[in-house]
């Protein structure tokens, strides 16, 4: 279980995260939403052990989170940072050499599911196919947690749908947790169990998706708009 307690982070005097407290239950797909600059990426980086908070405690199974959490957690950044001369298959081998939990057979199955050829060099792939490869190497790991920073951003609808289906097909809700930041709330809503709303570095709501529809009779997008008005 991952827990954040009273996490704050400042960049150059500007408060990016302000007393964030959060528990990530096991076996859920959770969406992290909020405007640009609300702190979504920073939350993910703190959980991934890539950023040390100024205040508060971030723990994984009771132990303070460090870079070593990478052994149990697969983090997918929102940037393209692959060696362009690698073929897809070589990239898979590289991941297998870096991560003990990387399952080459699973990764190849994902590649097949997403129609990616293992013999193509990264530099020759379209942006959409690089997006597919990125999710394939991330889900190729058998991690406890998958942290995805804007997995759908800047990709066309076909690719977004493939990535969404890959997520459903290749994660196990019995034992794996997915936390993803996103702007595409409408599209991502059917994938989610829960949604966390960030605003100016604070968590203003965390709700199960079905309860939003049950209680308020509206989808997550309209709910979020009304939440912002209410808390303005």
């Amino acid at each position: 279980m991952i827990k954040l307690q009273g996490i704050s982070k400042k960049y150059g005097g500007k408060c990016v995260l302000d007393q964030v407290t959060l528990e990530l239950p096991k076996g859920k797909i959770i969406g992290l939403v909020g405007e640009n600059g609300s702190g979504k990426s920073t939350v993910l980086k703190v959980i991934a052990g890539l950023l040390t908070p100024d205040e508060g405690r971030a723990t994984y199974n009771g132990e303070p989170i460090t870079r070593n959490i990478a052994a149990h957690l697969a983090y997918m950044s929102d940037t393209d940072e692959f060696y362009l001369y690698f073929k897809v298959g070589q990239l898979f081998d590289y991941y297998a050499s870096q991560f003990e939990d990387f399952d080459l057979i699973k990764a190849k199955e994902i590649a097949q599911f997403l129609n990616i050829s293992l013999d193509t060099r990264m530099k020759n792939l379209s942006k959409g196919n690089r997006g597919r490869v990125k999710i394939a190497v991330t889900l190729g790991r058998e991690a406890d947690y998958y942290l995805l920073d804007e997995p759908f951003s800047g990709l066309d609808p076909m690719v977004r749908e493939d990535i969404a289906k890959g997520l459903i097909r290749f994660t196990d809700p019995e034992r794996q947790t997915v936390l993803m930041s996103t702007h595409e709330i409408k599209e991502v809503e059917p994938l989610l169990d829960e949604i966390i709303v960030l605003r100016q570095g604070k968590i203003i709501a965390m709700e199960p998706i079905d309860e939003i529809r049950d209680m308020y009779g509206m989808d997550a997008t309209s709910w979020m708009v009304s939440l912002f008005k209410e808390k303005a």
Binding site: I29, E161, K165, I168, R169, P190, L191, D193
Partner: peptide, 16 residues
Amino acid sequence: VREYAVEAGVNANTMQ
């Protein structure tokens, strides 16, 4: 459950 979840594009817990 998993097949139908993938086809419908929804969370497997929802389909369960």
